[in-house]
């Protein structure tokens, strides 16, 4: 058993979007010899999307206790509403605590998309002629979201999601909450990390460290 989790340290994050673009490359875009095939409005389908402040009328997003820009992606809830809503078990939680979608079971009812309080699931309805860049990559007409780069799980270089790897600022930290020695565990123990909409009881395994002010 493991409970994989991610932390974004917003002090270190400078909003360069390396993570978003690395995610697009890793999970969405189809690289071909003479071009790249990907949805239009590609940022819409990135599995980690920048949320830029300041918003009009100082809207607080998802009870986020700061006006600092952040990134939204699957919160990998321990109590995921999307999984509860799914009638066929297509949305499920692996034993690593990662919420995935088994496309073979997905009937396309979109209940998971609407059940997600964080609005992270997308569905691309256009056409893409080539297969996804990895077995867990985006496929049109199926709900899509962050998998913590599950295809890298058994990578010889260790399980490092593409966004974490791309961040040269060290703003993204990934690890196992069940391992008390992992950096994420240490950060969570420090108590500086917050989660989105704690009140919903979804228990996200995605944390944010707010800027020092």
């Amino acid at each position: 058993m493991a409970r994989m989790a991610m932390v974004i340290d917003l002090n270190k994050c400078v909003g360069c979007y390396a993570c978003t673009i690395a995610c697009i490359r890793e999970n969405i875009a189809r690289q071909k010899k003479n071009g790249v095939e990907m949805p239009d409005h590609i940022f819409q389908y990135a599995r980690t999307r920048p949320i830029d402040f300041p918003l009009e009328g100082s809207v607080r997003v998802l009870g986020f206790p700061s006006n600092t820009p952040f990134f939204i992606q699957c919160q990998q809830c321990e109590n995921p509403p999307c999984v509860a809503a799914c009638p066929t078990g297509a949305s499920f939680k692996t034993k690593d605590g990662v919420v995935l979608v088994d496309r073979n079971k997905c009937i396309g009812c979109r209940a998971c998309m609407i059940a997600c309080p964080y609005g992270v699931r997308t569905m691309y309805l256009g056409r893409l002629s080539s297969p996804p860049p990895n077995p867990y990559g985006l496929v049109p007409r199926y709900p899509d979201k962050c998998t913590f780069c599950y295809h890298r799980k058994n990578s010889p270089e260790g399980w490092v999601p593409a966004c974490v790897e791309a961040c040269a600022f060290g703003a993204r930290i990934f690890g196992d909450l069940d391992d008390p020695n992992s950096e994420v565990s240490r950060i969570i123990r420090n108590g500086n990390a917050v989660r989105l909409r704690e009140d919903l009881g979804t228990k996200p395994k995605f944390f944010y460290i707010l800027p020092n002010k």
Binding site: T88, G89, A90, G108, C109, R141
Partner: peptide, 13 residues
Amino acid sequence: LINPEHGIWLIRG
């Protein structure tokens, strides 16, 4: 439904 062909999973799953 977008993928009704997987409808069997309503029962199997």
